[in-house]
Amino acid sequence: MPQTRDIAFLTGIGWATTHGVGRGGANRDFAMEPGPLPPLSRKDVFDEPNPRFGRMSGYSKLGLAAVAFALRDAALDRFDARRPIALFAGSQLGSLSTDRDYFDTVLPENGGLASPALFAYTLANCFLGEAAIQFGLTGPGGVITEGAGSDGLGALRMALEGLAVGEFDAVLAGCCDFPVVPPLPGIETPLPGALFFLLEKATAPSGRPAYARLALREDDVVLHDGTPASGLAAIARTCLSSDQHPRGSQP
């Protein structure tokens, strides 16, 4: 088996799923399952008034909520100066739900009623921008879309590669999929919800408690505490199973 070194400590977990919102340190009742997503209000995510949140698309609210809880879990949600934290997300559908809503404003009147407010949210990376503004994140970022049958770990691999080659010292990596309702025929519906991890470079420990160690083998297999990972949700479930894996100190 190829030799590998730990690349990252996983120090924050946040989610917004069909079971509600949560973060690792406060709520271990994590599940990512089919079903309707509960509506997200500003109060579900932020204590203080947030004039932007109400204007966002459902996809952006979902992704931003999970990012917010992951940062809060690592006590990094408040900041005095912008931080070079990177942000990579996997998404099968991206902004497709908003795309449909937007194009429905284009169809009547030959486009004369096209909504600029909706158009601003018709990119898969739109919630990354919202998170960058909200939390002062100046690192690189992007949304990865993998094909059918992928393990959904593309964003996590990209994050680990970036940490390994020194592109950044901390990164949020996860997934976000907001379903189109009613479903569009011919489009496979992934599990709805968003899940994000805060990863910190293993060679520069911050001292924050860590749930797990992550590594990337030369053959691109993601290792979670030395064991091949099967998916993001499986990593979260193992981390949050406190009997097996108490949140411990970084070495």
Binding site: N125, P140, G141, G142, V143, I144, T145, E146, G147, E161
Partner: peptide
């Protein structure tokens, strides 16, 4: 299989940066 990288109008610049890295 390949994957798509989306960073709005800097998508391909960022993809080339990832590739070079």
């Amino acid at each position: 299989p390949g994957l798509n990288f989306n960073a709005a109008c800097a998508s391909s610049t960022a993809a080339i940066a990832r590739a070079a890295a």
